[in-house]
Structures are given as structure tokens and as C-alpha cells.
Design a protein around this nucleic acid. Sequence first.
RNA 1: CGAGGAGUAGCGCAGUUUGGUAGCGCGCUUGGUUCGGGACCAAGAGGUCGUGGGUUCAAAUCCCGUCUCCUCGACCA
Length: 476
Amino acid sequence: MANEKFVSQIADIETDFPQWYTDVVVKTKLVDYGPVKGTMVIRPYGYAIWENIQKEMDARFKAAGVENAYFPLLIPMSFMTKEAEHVEGFAPEVAVVTHAGGAKLEEPLVIRPTSETIIGHMMGKWVESWRDLPLRMNQWCNVMRWEKTTRPFLRTSEFLWQEGHSVYATGEEAEQETLNMLHLYEEFAKNVLCMPVLIGRKTEKEKFAGAVATFGMEAMMHDGKSLQAGTTHYMGQNFAKAFGVQFTGVDGTLKYGYTMSYGVSTRLIGALIMTHGDARGLILPPPVAPIEVVIVPIAQKKEGVLEACNALADRLKKTGVRAKVDDSDNSPGWKFNEWEMKGVPVRIELGPRDIEAGKMTVFRRDTLEKQDSFTLENAEETVKALLSDICENMYERAKTRMQSRIVNASSLEELLSGVDGGNFVRAGWCGERACEDKVKEFAQATARVLDEKNDLPTCVCCGKKAKHTVFFARAY
RNA sequence: CGAGGAGUAGCGCAGUUUGGUAGCGCGCUUGGUUCGGGACCAAGAGGUCGUGGGUUCAAAUCCCGUCUCCUCGACCA
């Protein structure tokens, strides 16, 4: 088999998925490890994916009327302690600056693990009247959480994300925005990452520290485990009260605002890798792939070959396709394997034979199919159609896979065997924390989200009447 | 943070048991031949053996500390 040597560079995706993931992210040059524990360097190929994610997401926020802003990295320690649940949730994982300018600081400064507190503080200054509302802001920034175990993109001490924060005059509006943003994320996952997700409300146990309600979007990874790919939170008046976010209403009385927040992070990159990847490495969704089409010249020193490749690349670039000619000295076979590992959606091979016939050989990464019947003449149309077909196919394939791995359980044993088999397990739940804890202890599975379709009658744990139907899974 | 494993050339590793001249494969550089699934020949460059201390005439090798990475558990975007 021609690819044996190549495939052996990365661990087996079926039998050793965690190692496969680590191998792939490092060998494809998405990331490298930083010198400080839990830190990662996002290399150009990885950062380009993030930039594409930002571009698509940012456009959606702006279309929804959200404005970008930037708040400071350092937060006075006293801010963190103003909201009781919030400090309890985040205290164990914050990094604190105690010295600066060669002296011990009067008040320690927290490196933001999230910005609810400092933004709440500023909102308190900026909101005075009902006319100031709603106030809807987003920031793209880094945050730091001192995690115990780390893995590139999935969990690192420092990561990049966007955090949106809004304050509304009424709880209904803030709650509605919490759902709107959840649906925005879902749409983004589908159309930009070609990734199906489950969305829904989180249980009390799983909700954000300081929130009234948390909603999440969960994606199924190749091994059947779940990854929280984004969250939105409704805070009620918790933070508004802690930070004095008050306004005078139409009726002339002073009221507290209602806040909400939402975020997605560089973890999305990990999510798309673990959703779409295969034994050969990455399969990148075209909308975020740094290179959508790589053109590999065959016999590139022969006259006219490189010229033809460059001309084709230029034509594709003019139509907005991210195209690249690999004119390095490596052999064609080497290039094929390299770009496959790096997940480029479409490869075009162009050699003297093709050029003479006015054709091009096209390989698509998602299906590994190669075709040599396309004409060079209408390459633009061919490539556009192919990229959109790949997008659709990647989504449908992942969706079919996820749906085929959602099973119902009516007992703890069924739930255990379900998650052991790499499934998401739907089960009834009475709503008691004790039962949720018992499931975790028994099956090492957690409640990912509550299913909107609440159709299972009895609690999987205690057998009493179920209040909710829950998606349980092992999680990253 | 608990249990296990690993750090030797850019990458993958051998050498450590039994202390005694720093090795192999790939990659890299130069020149040439090649090019339709990880090509070939020739010549070359590259190492404070993670790091700090100790034992010794002598340490990659033995002892103690420490840092980082990987896997599995408890917590999280």
C-alpha cells in the first residue's frame, strides 16, 4: 500500500484517538507547545483557520447589531468577589498578578478568566436611562484559566475567544437574546464548520458560575464523546445587582438591568478536527480552510507546467477561492500525502498530459475520490460547485453519524452500555441533583443538554416521573 | 491534583541494566539525475544528552530536586 509509510506518522484514529488528535495538530503545524505549562503557540496554518472563523462569526454579530469593543486584561481582585457564585466557580483557576513595577501591588490583579465582572462594572457607568438599552457588545480577546490537564485547542491555560455581553431592560429580552445567540452559533456550526450540534439548556450542575440559565451547543467527536463547542448564559439581575447596572425606566423608577453573555473559543478548531478527521489526518471545512484548493504540478520543470498551474491559481483567486500552487521540490506523491494530512478540501493535479488535453485531475479530500474528466476551461465553476458539495457532504455525513449514535436508555445499565459504545444517550431525568451525580458515578457520563423534545417518561436513575429528557455523554 | 509513561541533532529513536571517544533512520545544505501516490546518487553541516545540584579520576548512564510533554481519572470554552 502506497500510503503505509505516511499513515504511520500518525496514531490510529480508531484505536488511539487521543494520540491521533495530538499527532495531527502538531504534525500539520496547526500548533506547537509553548514553554509554559498548558500554553500553545497557534502557528500560521492554525491561526488562518481562526481568522476565517472570526471573519464569519464577526460578520454575523455585526449583522445582528452587536458592536465590538475591548476591555482590559487585568481585573481588580475585588471585582471577582462581588458575585458570590461567580467567584466560587472561577477562583480555583485564576492567575493573579501580585507584583508589578518592582513592587508588591496594593490590590492583586486577576488575569481575566472571562469578563463579566469588568464589563459589568463599565456597564454600571454607561447605563443610566432606558434609552441606553439594550447595550450589546462583543470582544475578541484572550483569557486565562489555570486548568489542570491541558490539550491544544481543547483546553489550554490561555485561549482566544469572543465574549459577547449585553444588558437589557427586561428579563424577557435578555432571555430571548440568549436563545438567539445560541441559534446563531448553531447556524454557524452548520454552515461554516459543516458540523452538526445539539443545542439546549444545561442543568444546574453544568451551568455557568453566576448565571440563572446556561445553554450549550454540543458536538459529537469521532470517538462518540461530546465537546462543548459554545455556550450562552442568561444572568438575570445577578451581575447587574453586583455591579450597579441601573437605569431609570420609562415610568421614572430606578431598575436593575438584565444581562446575558455568550462565547465561542479556539476550541472550535479542536471540534472541527475531531468531528471531520480521518486516518489520513485533517479534513477541513472549505469555509474555514486556509487553503481551499492546492494545485500540484506534475513534472513541474517541464516547460509550461508551472505557468499553467499559476494561471489556474490566479483564475481561482479572482473568484475568491483560496488557492495555492505547491511548487516545492518535493515529489508529487509527497505533496499528495502532505496536503491530504493537512486537510485541504480540493487538490488539482496538473501535468503535461492534462495541459495538452485541456483537462485537470481533481481530488476531493472528504471522499478521497479522484477524477480526471474536468476541463480546464470552466475550472472556476467546477471548483465552486465542488467546494459547496464538499461542505454539504461533510455536514450530512457528520449528521448521519451523530444521529445513528444517539440511543435511548431507560436504566443506568443501558445508559452505561450506550456511552461505552460511543453514543449520546437520551434518558429521562427527575431533575434531582442526586440522580445526575449517580449517572456520572455509574457511567462517567454527564448531562450535556436538555432535549427540547421531552418525551421519556421516567428517570433513568430513580424511576420516578421524569421532568426532562437529557442527552448524556462522556465529554472532553 | 492522583496513577502510569517519556524527555539524547529539526523529527523518530538506540545507547542507561553493567559509568570510560555521541550513534542510527528520516529531514536539512550543495551539485546532478528525476517527477501521474512520501524518487535516486554523491559530498556536507548539525548535539551544554530537558534543567539544577550531588557521587566519581571519569556521568547520557548512578543519587536527589525541578520543569515540560503524553495517556488515564477528578474540574472546565
